[in-house]
Amino acid sequence: MVTLTLDGLTARYGRRQILSAITVPPLVGGQVVAVLGPNAAGKSTLFRRIFGLLAGGGTVRITDAISERPVAYMPQETGVNAVLTVYESVLLARMQGRRLNVKPEDLAEVDRALDELGIVALGERDIGDLSGGQRQLVGAAQALVQNPEILLLDEPTSALDLHRQIQLLSILRRLAKERGMLVIAALHDLGHALRFTDQALILQEGRLAACGATDDVVTPELLRRVFQVEARIESCSRGRPQLIVEAAI
C-alpha cells in the first residue's frame, strides 16, 4: 500500500518561515489522517509543500505507489468563474495531462466520482450557480475522479452543513478502507477528527506539535496548549470519544 513520509519539511513565503522541520513517520494507505491546528498554523502550506507547489527543505517520500500521479489535492479555493457545467468541471479534472478525446472510461470515472459523493443530480448545473457547500463537494469530486492513492483535502467540510459534513467524512473513511487510499484532510472540527480519523498531525505556528493516533494526541492538555480552549474528552454511550469544550482561555 502507498506510504507517505515527511522528513524535515520546511517552507517559506519570502522571508517568512511558514513550516519548520516537519517530520512525520510513514503514513500508510487505508487510513484517514487529520491535519489540525489553529488559524495560520501552516496547514494549507503543508498541503502545498506535499503536493509540490511550494519549494523548500526536507523531503516528501512516496513509496509503493502504483500510478504515475498518485497524489490529488483539493485546495480551499473553489473556482466558480468558468462557464462550465458540474459534469464538465469534474471531467476536466480527470482529463488533465491526457489527450483531447474523451473515452467512455473517462465518463465512467466522472459518473463514479459524482455518484460516490451523491451529487449526480448536480451534473447539469452550471458551477457558477452552486452554493458554497455544493462547490466544495464538486471540488472533492474533482480530486476523487483522478483516482488518487493519496488524497489531500484542505478543509473539505468548511462550507458544508452538518449532515453533509458527516456524509463526506463517512465516504472518505469508507473509500480509504476500500481503495487503500491515504486521505489527509485539514479539519477545524476536532470532534469530527476524533470520530472519523485514524491519525492526526497537530500544527502550531508551523511546527509539529504532536502526531500519532488521533485518540492519543487529541488530549485536554494539547487542546489547552495549542487551541487555547478548556475541554474534556468523554466517551458517549456508544463508546465513541466526545469532545466537550467548556471555555476559550
Partner: peptide, 23 residues
C-alpha cells in the same frame, strides 16, 4: 493552443484550482 485545451479550460477555475490539477 488546442494542445493545451484541458489546461486552458482549467485556468478559468483560478490559478489555485488549476495548480491543484497539475497545471
Amino acid at each position: 493552443l488546442a494542445r493545451h485545451g484541458w489546461a486552458l479550460t482549467a485556468m478559468r477555475l483560478g490559478d489555485a484550482k488549476a495548480e491543484s490539477l497539475g497545471v
